[in-house]
């Protein structure tokens, strides 16, 4: 009755789709990455060229700059989100009327299409239309123009990401905080520990798994951000916000240099995997240490 072949039969359609549209593209890009293939070049045929693409890639300043920008963006965004999200979650631990309502509001950004988030922030920041440049200039005399100033554009994309994803961190950490045991905190209060000591020695270690898991999920998302930034700045001014996804999609892809583009995609995937694995190893290693004692 319960033969495993029936089980495999149930799994078959899922595995087939994941193979054809997930694994096959990966294998394909793995092959093309080692070839020279450009359908509009003098020699449009696919030719095997070994590691030549990668040789070119490690000296490609635009690509390396874009990688650096992506890391910088992910770092600033995720750190701000964790810090801000933690404080919001702490504030939310208290009971007060209308809690459910506030919670609903904070879930809203999570379901909005990234492209619409980009549109929203564009409307906020466009000079001559958006309230942000207008009021910053009127109240503080600050000239805000993200199509002109590199740092402003970069930090606006970070702020946008913080606006979009802090609620996820808040709600995740809130769930973790609510499930913490009460005794260590009561004991610490009896022992006369101050707030910072309680935070540093009790809350933080207990929350570590939840924080690491959130960092992991947010990091993976931040590294592949494309839609919002494309809508907000188009990668500009210049290449100031051209994160790696945008770089592949808008700069390398239209050149139809398939071999080189595939090599770049592969290296991006490689770096994502390395980072992902390092975060995950950190996560698991910590848990194993805890289990040992």
């Amino acid at each position: 009755m319960r033969s495993s072949s029936v089980g495999w039969l149930f799994l078959a359609p899922t595995l087939l789709i994941l193979f054809v549209f997930g694994v096959l593209p990966f294998l394909y890009v793995l092959v093309i990455g080692f070839t020279q293939w450009n359908s509009f070049a003098a020699d449009p045929e696919m030719r095997f060229t070994g590691a030549d693409n990668f040789r070119r890639l490690v000296f490609d300043d635009q690509f390396l700059y874009s990688l650096w920008l992506t890391l910088k963006f992910a770092f600033f965004a995720v750190v701000s989100e964790i810090v801000l999200g933690y404080f919001l979650a702490q504030a939310f631990m208290r009971d007060f009327p209308g809690k459910g309502f506030f919670r609903t509001i904070h879930t809203l950004p999570l379901v909005i299409a990234p492209i619409a988030v980009g549109a929203t922030w564009r409307l906020l920041t466009v000079p001559g239309l958006g309230p942000l440049p207008y009021y910053l200039n009127r109240w503080f005399g600050y000239e805000f123009n993200i199509s002109r100033y590199i740092d402003q554009a970069f930090f606006t994309t970070v702020v946008m990401d913080v606006w979009h994803w802090t609620p996820l961190v808040t709600l995740t950490l809130l769930a973790a905080l609510s499930s913490l045991p009460k005794e260590p905190f009561e004991q610490a209060q009896i022992d006369g520990a101050n707030r910072f000591q309680i935070f540093w020695h009790i809350t933080l270690p207990l929350l570590k798994p939840a924080i690491l898991a959130t960092v992991f999920i947010r990091m993976m998302d931040a590294l592949r951000t494309v839609d919002e930034v494309w809508m907000l700045t188009g990668g500009g001014p210049g290449a100031a916000t051209r994160y790696i996804g945008l770089h592949i999609w808008r700069v390398v892809f239209p050149k139809t240099d398939y071999g080189y583009g595939s090599a770049m995609s592969l290296i991006t995937l490689y770096l994502t995997i390395v980072l992902c694995w390092m975060l995950y190893a950190g996560l698991v290693a910590r848990r194993d240490l805890k289990r040992a004692d």
Partner: peptide, 16 residues
């Protein structure tokens, strides 16, 4: 499959 950056798969999927 969910974690992979979509931009990486644009080129092979477009060609496929």
């Amino acid at each position: 499959n969910r974690m992979a950056p979509p931009a990486v798969f644009l080129l092979p999927l477009f060609l496929l």
